[in-house]
Design a protein around this nucleic acid. Structure first.
Length: 321
DNA sequence: AAAATTTGACCTGT
DNA sequence: ACAGGTCAAATTTT
């Protein structure tokens, strides 16, 4: 038992190191990406860079999940001893830290009384990112190529704009419990806070994040054509997701009437035209979209894992268990 | 007709 | 009691 725990902790330590390295790589690439963007040219080089970004993205996702799985195992014992799984720090500034622990509960809570048995439900990886749009009405970067279904919207205390809640369209058909929250930041209307909970276990998720699939099953062999085929199936889903699913009502926090005006844009949400046609469905495109449409390297640079990767933890992960 | 969104009510944690 | 998160009926869109 004890040896087992030590093994897990060693695993966590190793994963944390990997994650740290990926972050460094990511930070480095954020810099080069910016240069490339400013340079404007660099077709092939940019393509390679995007591939690297996509790889980093998927790597982080895998490590992310692995760390969390290992940590949740270790944390069981730790919690029993009165300890606490170190939660993410209060999201700097206007965030709502009080919800950090409970916001993942929803997927398992249900309306009834299933809460008792599903006490340990806070194991879904949580990833936070910020996405900048180029215009107030431009929400293209919020399309991550996955199909989300909006299930709620809430005014947040002290926040200027409401927060929208999305979950995977295939939640019921494929038991995919991925969800995300999107909220326009107070200070910068062009900037959105996007918090992902869990990762897609549905087919579209596997298509967009191949590493995620390969990490779980041997679908690593899933050939590119398969991914392309996946893309065709994902495309319609994306179109439906890219349009209506977008949080247009996030444009303002107005009453229903005014909101309806914004909703009217749903049928043709992109006043500037059809940027949607370049909708991403592959990791490369996805990252490109994030990095390119985002006027800054923010999309990659701001990726922030919500795990307790503070200095202490990095120094001595075992002390947390 | 089916699917997605909206929105008020309800539930849970603090 | 309050705030955040989710549900589900009603409504809208495709």
């Amino acid at each position: 038992m004890e040896g087992m725990s030590e093994e897990k902790c060693a695993l966590v330590a190793e994963l944390v190191r990997m994650l740290d390295m990926v972050r460094q790589l990511e930070a480095h690439m954020a810099g080069t990406g910016q240069q490339q963007q400013q340079g404007g040219g660099g077709g092939a080089a940019a393509g390679g860079d995007q591939r690297c970004r996509a790889l980093v993205w998927t790597m982080r996702g895998s490590i992310d999940r692995a760390v969390h799985m290992a940590m949740s195992c270790c944390a069981d014992g730790r919690r029993a001893a009165g300890g606490q799984l170190p939660e993410s720090p209060p999201s700097g500034g206007d965030g709502s830290p009080r919800s950090a622990g409970s916001d993942q509960a929803g997927d398992f809570r249900g309306r009834g009384n299933a809460a008792g048995q599903c006490k340990k439900k806070k194991t879904l990886p949580k990833r936070r990112t910020q996405v900048r749009v180029s215009a107030v009405q431009d929400v293209t970067p919020l399309d991550d190529g996955l199909s989300w279904r909006k299930y709620g919207q809430k005014d947040i205390l002290g926040a200027k704009y409401p927060r929208a809640y999305f979950r995977c369209t295939h939640r019921h058909t494929q038991s995919c419990h991925a969800s995300k929250q999107v909220q326009r930041t107070d200070g910068d209307p062009l900037l959105f806070d996007v918090v992902y909970h869990g990762s897609h276990t549905c087919t579209q998720g596997a298509a967009v994040h191949p590493a995620a699939a390969s990490a779980e099953h041997s679908q690593a062999q899933k050939p590119q054509p398969a991914a392309a085929a996946e893309q065709t199936t994902a495309s319609p889903a994306f179109e439906s997701a890219a349009g209506p699913v977008l949080p247009f009502s996030l444009l303002s926090n107005k009453p229903a009437g005014a909101d309806h005006a914004a909703g009217g844009a749903t049928s043709s949400p992109f006043p500037g035209g059809a940027r949607v046609t370049a909708s991403p469905a592959t990791p490369e495109c996805l990252v490109q979209e994030l990095a390119a449409t985002t006027n800054s390297p923010m999309a990659m640079g701001e990726m922030d894992f919500m795990f307790p990767l503070d200095a202490d933890f990095l120094e001595n992960p075992a002390s947390y268990f």
